[in-house]
Design a protein around this nucleic acid. Sequence first.
RNA 1: CGGGACGUAGCGCAGCUUGGUAGCGCGCAGCGUUCGGGACGCUGAGGUCGCGGGUUCAAAUCCCGCCGUCCCGACCA
Length: 474
Amino acid sequence: MALPSQNEDFPGWYQEVVRAAELAEPSLARGTMVIRPYGWAIWEAIQRAVDDRIKATGHENFYFPMFFPYRLLEKEAEHVEGFSPEVAVVTHAGGEQLEEPLVVRPTSETIIWSTYARWIQSYRDLPLLYNQWANVVRWELRPRVFLRTTEFLWQEGHTAHETEEEAQHEALRILDEVYLDAYRTVMAVPAHAGRKSESERFPGAVETYTLEALMRDRKALQACTSHYLGTNFSVAYGVRFLNRQGQQEHPHATSWGLSTRAVGAVLMTHGDDKGLRLPPAVAPVQVVIVPIYRTDEERGRVLEACARLAYDLAEHRVKIDDREDVRPGFKFNHWELRGVPLRLELGPRDLDAGRVTMASRLTGQKQELPLDGVSTRVAAALEEVQEGLLRDATEFRDAHTFRPKDLGELASLIEDPGGFVVTGWCGSADCEAKVKEETRATIRFLPIERRDVDGACVVCGQPAAEEATWAQAY
RNA sequence: CGGGACGUAGCGCAGCUUGGUAGCGCGCAGCGUUCGGGACGCUGAGGUCGCGGGUUCAAAUCCCGCCGUCCCGACCA
């Protein structure tokens, strides 16, 4: 199969690789996808990494229903306004029209906070530190496999706190200790942590924090978000607690989510023209062993040696590709397309010399290793791939980060070569809108800490209030 | 919702202008030769040509209506 060049047509390359590598395929209902076992295994690894970190920061998992009455959604004004265009509503069930339509959750703040009203009475009940793994449905106008599907899987955390300070701290802690760390150390994605401008904020949030990563086609991807919700939801759903001074108060909320989009982020950060390149930490197969033989006699001793090799490498996810009906060259390409970090080729020539041939998906280089002590060499090579992918992606990101002098330069950099563009910004929505109109770029993030900046707004020339990072985005 | 393209075998497509036996490549099945970078030969299976109506001796092809998909915008994890 001929892959299109990634640089010429990234989304085409992306969709084709996702299908060819048997990760996922479009399904019958509009904008939904079937996740196949290989793709699911990548998601499982991401899930595990994120869930471990959620638990390490003191949260427990729970589960809430997928349906809730439409009127619940309506209680928080900004929230309905933001989500009502994209919610799916169940109007018929049990063979008749429902008296009250049910929403298929686009996110769960509403149902969770209407329940928190019963759980929270006193400051002693706080904080509530809970998370759920769930599917949600958003009727997006332009779906794209993994990056924006009608139904997607995610975790959503929902916490309640006594004070603004504690809730703010919580939102930022999740961003840093859960998301930034999982993206960096597990997915090898170097993301920027930042704060959203008002126009990009989650509907109902006081502050939205985000991770933004640069994809290989020089477009940005919002990799996850963490929100400080203030008391918007606790007020809307009548959640109050008696504080330490004996007064009624509304708790402060956070919510935060990371979705199956993360799989897309991994693919689009590391992929090359041969297909996927997977960081070992999320690769369903970390080492593939390809036996090479002609005669029955060779077959016997090669397969036996492969089994012994797999045993030596049992601490990794190892697969022996012992298919009889395809030739070695086919297997090489098959596993390269699927992003397997290391390939070990074992044939009579290697066996006679007491060695194995190792090929790295990071560099494409082959080298010969002695079979003795192979496991330490393989472990080191896997680490090298993990680190190398992060290094490559970081270099790529930094090589595509620019600081233009004026709007004209901003526009040309956004267009070609594309990437992150950092400028002064006066803070007005008008200037933000003007850039979008002229370049299709939006503010991806602002620094988390508000601080004084020198220089002028790239649009209007007024003194800058913020340093904004712009990009075209998915 | 605006602008464009398309619907023919599991997938990718040709055929339609000028109506007359349903085609090609990949994949799939069988046999043989191959096997250290995507093998080859022979044989074979697989289709209500998106749906409904009309014109005609005859419709994948012409006409009318409907449905659906994809791409570019607006919306978004």
